[in-house]
Nucleic acid binder design. Structure first.
Length: 484
DNA sequence: GCGTCGATCCC
DNA sequence: GGGGATCGACG
């Protein structure tokens, strides 16, 4: 008998004030058969009893957090079942718990209910349905094998309630004393997040001495409703194009599962590098399509195609979709037109008899790009600004912005210039190379108005003057850098 | 009045 | 299990 008492003391020490009690009518306690003396000599048992740790409930397989839909009652009981987190298509697992240190206990009741994701973990209006479920909870009777017992929960579904039924549902459950954290009712029951729950496991048993003990509660990781757009899995279904220039700016259409336009971004990833695609909320079409511009790849000098991952990312929880491959293409000699001489201007006759007599397409092509098309963000430009600043380029840039003609005797530019590659990528059609030009003013005078727009945009981005308008800058055609 | 989107329900 | 129609709230 001393063995039993020692064991009970251990158990009772383990059970803290946090432990939970409930009405016998709800979760009936288990009547344990009379304790029988083990075959081993008594002194060994006594030692074992003194050293035996308290009973413990651990989750051996967490529920899969995403991928299952909560079902309304009207949708029937075929609500699927919560899978284990390590579940795969070919190897399905189930949420499971293990009870440890159950020497001498013959029957244990394990119950599962749903609670809020966040403290105080109030009882959740949604309920569990399926095998061994009643009143929104699941309850199983287990018979420990030796000192431990494990159980997997199969066919466990989450049945959601309608908003107008929240209060009733919670009150019903509280009336049944289902409230593992004794958190009770809450004043503003509408606060509850209906898109996420946690499974709350508890065990109870009666010892040989007739003492009723409870083990737990133990919380699972959150389980999110697949149907809800603010918690569901993100998925890219299709992209209209899976390759593009390494300097970015490529327009891509992405078809995706429902997203929230104010809570979504598209990331391009390659190892430790990651960049965000450029789009606005207006570019998210009815939650299922996104029109974006690719960000520039970190290396604008790649010689081979560089595959990267594209994925959706929810901003609020950081969750990402599976990646899709997008391949950045190298410049391939003249993919920017950098080394190509600008074609001669057409004659008036050619203009009028050509495929674009009204010059609409031509005007479109000549449209001055918004500086933002070239400046992903001020953060992107900052390092360049610093580089310029070191070499006193920045004051020169500002001079240029004011169209100051005194741009001679500027520092030499060559491949050793900081961020030379980036600079190169910004140079518009007509600039063959920076290195033979030797000086910055050559670059400037070699740039036509389009380039000026770029560079002015660059300066604007540096100075924060984004909205300022500038008149066209006419540079004589023959003043281009060709002669340098 | 219109478009969007979450909630709910139907197949 | 998943797709989608419908409805109502909301801006």
């Amino acid at each position: 008998m001393c063995i039993c008492l020692a064991f009970l003391e251990e158990v009772m020490d383990y059970i803290t004030a946090d432990s939970w009690t409930r009405e016998p009518s709800i979760l009936s306690t288990v009547t344990v058969a009379p304790w029988t003396s083990p075959a081993e000599p008594p002194h060994i048992n006594w030692v074992q009893c003194q050293n035996s740790p308290a009973p413990k409930l651990i989750i051996t397989e967490q529920p899969k957090q995403r991928g299952m839909r909560f079902r309304y009652k009207c949708e029937g009981r075929s609500a699927g079942s919560i899978l284990g987190e390590s579940s795969t298509e070919h190897n399905k697992t189930l949420p499971a718990v293990m009870l440890l240190n159950l020497e001498g206990i013959q029957e244990v009741t394990v119950s599962v209910c749903l609670v809020w994701k966040d403290p105080p973990h109030r009882i959740h209006p949604h309920g569990l349905v399926g095998k061994d479920c009643h009143d929104g909870i699941c309850e199983v009777l287990l018979h420990p094998d030796g000192s431990q017992v494990e159980h997997s929960f199969s066919n466990l579904g989450i049945q959601c309630v309608r908003k107008k039924e929240i209060e009733t549902s919670v009150k019903t459950r509280l009336n049944l004393s289902i409230d593992p954290y004794n958190a009770g009712m809450w004043r503003h029951h509408e606060e509850v997040d209906l898109n996420v729950v946690r499974l709350c496991f508890q065990a109870s048993c009666t010892t040989a001495s007739g003492q009723h003990i409870t083990i737990g509660p133990v919380l699972s990781e959150p389980v999110y409703d697949k149907k809800s757009t603010n918690t569901s899995e993100l998925k890219i279904c299709r992209m209209n194009k899976d390759y593009g220039r390494c300097d970015g700016g490529e327009e891509i259409y992405i078809l995706c599962d429902k997203v929230q336009k104010e809570d979504i971004q598209v990331m391009f990833l390659d190892g430790t590098w990651e960049a965000r695609a450029d789009f606005s909320q207006a570019d998210v079409h009815r939650q299922i399509a996104i029109v974006l511009k690719t960000p520039p790849y970190y290396d604008l000098h790649i010689k081979d195609p560089a595959p990267v991952q594209v994925c959706l990312q929810r901003i609020t929880d950081g969750i990402r979709s599976e990646g899709m491959i997008f391949t950045y293409m190298p410049r391939e000699g003249d993919s920017y037109g950098l080394r190509k001489k600008r074609p001669r201007r057409s004659t008036l006759y050619e203009d009028l008899t050509g495929p674009d007599p009204h010059g609409i397409d031509t005007k479109r092509k000549q449209a001055r790009p918004d500086y933002r098309e070239h400046c992903a963000s001020v953060a992107d430009i900052l390092p360049i600004a610093e580089a310029f600043s070191d070499n006193e380029y920045l004051p020169r840039m500002n001079q240029m912005m004011n169209l100051d003609p005194a741009l001679n005797d500027l520092p030499h530019i060559d491949e050793s210039t900081p961020l030379y590659d980036t600079l190169m990528s910004w140079m518009p059609e007509g600039i063959d190379d920076l290195s033979p030009c030797a000086t910055f003013d050559n670059v400037l005078t070699g740039v036509e108005d389009e380039a000026t727009a770029n560079l002015v945009g660059f300066s604007l981005a540096l100075t924060g003057e984004q909205g300022q308008q500038f008149s066209d800058c006419a540079y004589p055609e023959d003043s281009r850098m060709g002669g340098c």
